[in-house]
Design a binder for these strands. Structure first.
Lengths: 251, 251
DNA sequence: GTCAGTTCTTGATGCAGATCAACATTCACT
DNA sequence: AGTGAATGTTGATCTGCATCAAGAACTGAC
């Protein structure tokens, strides 16, 4: 092995990573983090439209987004696609592939991104000897499952404006936790991708951005978003604004 | 400990369980299954409308449905609820609670059911020393995540008849794997619950059942369902029947 | 710089499915 | 068995959002 790897290893070192506790190492002791670092592979940066993996590809590693944004999606029967999610720094992709050793979705890069690669076989071995890592992995997978519930409610019950407001608030929260501005950010995905993700037509998304802006809740300039009234946006997201005195399907 | 537990232990014994390989023990060696059995708790049977747990309850155990059906749901802001899923024998509930030690959803019994209780702390300890159990657990969680994608496509892109057809086919498959008839079964959930789960109004579900019956795809008598033409139902579910030459949001 | 191909916006129209309403059936309880 | 409540069905109407259409703004390749 090459001895001159100091620069490289600094770049990978979890303890120097800006993600800090957002990532897997959370809750691990420093020596355990070091063991974890040993199995992490670094890859060259990925560029817009690169595929990190495709559906049915053999599964070997999980990936943590270090910088950039990655979209996961499922091809549909009719040739279209269903966007499953947009993944920001600190978020892990590939969890759905553990079950049958094949990726269950495709992952495409939306803007220049860097990822940490975690060979899953080695990760499992490590989890076998580091209880807190095993626990951390269970938590990670569990969190993903819990999030799903929210999304089902969004797609099953919310109307268009509630969906878009929820989407913006979700991004805001996630940016905030990463130390970015929660009120001023750029969208790395197209209107089409937003609509696809939220189960809405592009035109509806576009109209809603315009309306939200007219109502002074946000300022929209192309992909640049400023949230002007988070409280109201949050209310809209929860569906607790305006009339809506319904309780449909309440049983 | 009581020595006279033979009857009890037979009832719990995974090797005698009709679920067989559908359940957690899948892929474990007999001695490992025995260790697993030691931590499984048996509970008295649950009755219709009992709650197995409620959202925000402290999390201590996963549950495997042994017989019956259990519905998981999330309360909504407006007082209604969002049905997250219907769980048949062999399916595990509570996975979404690992992350923060609280249940993320409520679980309600639809018809008299029995469950195996797996104290998660002990399960983790066991997974720490049985690599194949750890792997099995990762797979289990992963599967749940992968399934989600399908559901997002259903709610985001499919129309009413595609949704109901998908629902029936999903039940059919799951019954089949459990050794029940895939073409003749009883629904343990109400029309309202089906509609809620599929993001449809009750009336729509009711009309579709009528229509499917008129089209001779199914025979419906109250909660009793017979699938008369699985192929066509499958086609409807995939949206590959009739016109629909669309490719909306295909990018 | 120009031009072709995306992506986005805005307006006009149509329709799937929600909602409203009324009745039928089944269930739960005494 | 009888009564009230819950659940299911069917029809009529309404509406939110998809779809269609057309132009504007941006992007990237040369």
């Amino acid at each position: 092995m090459n001895r001159v790897i100091s620069i490289e290893s600094i770049k990978v070192a979890c303890k120097n990573c800006s993600l800090g506790s957002l990532c897997l190492p959370m809750g691990l002791t420093p020596p355990d983090v070091e063991k974890l670092e040993k199995i992490i592979k670094r890859n060259r940066p990925l560029h817009r439209n690169d595929h990190l993996f495709r559906e049915t590809d053999a599964f070997s590693s999980l990936y943590v987004v270090k910088t950039g944004t990655i979209k996961t999606y499922l091809p549909r029967e009719d040739g279209g696609e269903q966007v499953l999610g947009f993944h920001l720094p600190g978020e892990v992709i590939g969890l759905d592939a553990i079950q049958d050793e094949r990726h269950a979705c495709s992952a495409k890069v939306l803007e220049t991104s860097a990822v940490c690669e975690l060979p899953f076989g080695q990760l499992e071995e490590l989890a076998q000897v580091i209880p807190s890592l095993q626990h951390q992995l269970f938590r990670l997978l569990s969190k993903e499952i819990a999030e799903e519930g929210k999304m089902l409610t969004l797609l099953g019950k919310k109307n268009a404006e509630e969906r878009l407001a929820s989407f913006l608030m979700s991004l805001s929260c996630r940016f905030k936790r990463r130390g970015f501005s929660p009120t001023d950010f750029y969208l790395s995905m197209s209107r089409n991708e937003i609509g696809n993700y939220l189960g809405l037509a592009v035109e509806t998304v576009s109209r809603l951005f315009t309306r939200f802006q007219e109502e002074a809740m946000v300022r929209v300039d192309r992909k640049h978003i400023e949230l002007l009234d988070q409280d109201r946006l949050e209310s809209v997201a929860r569906g607790s604004l305006c009339s809506r005195g319904n309780e449909s399907n309440s049983m």
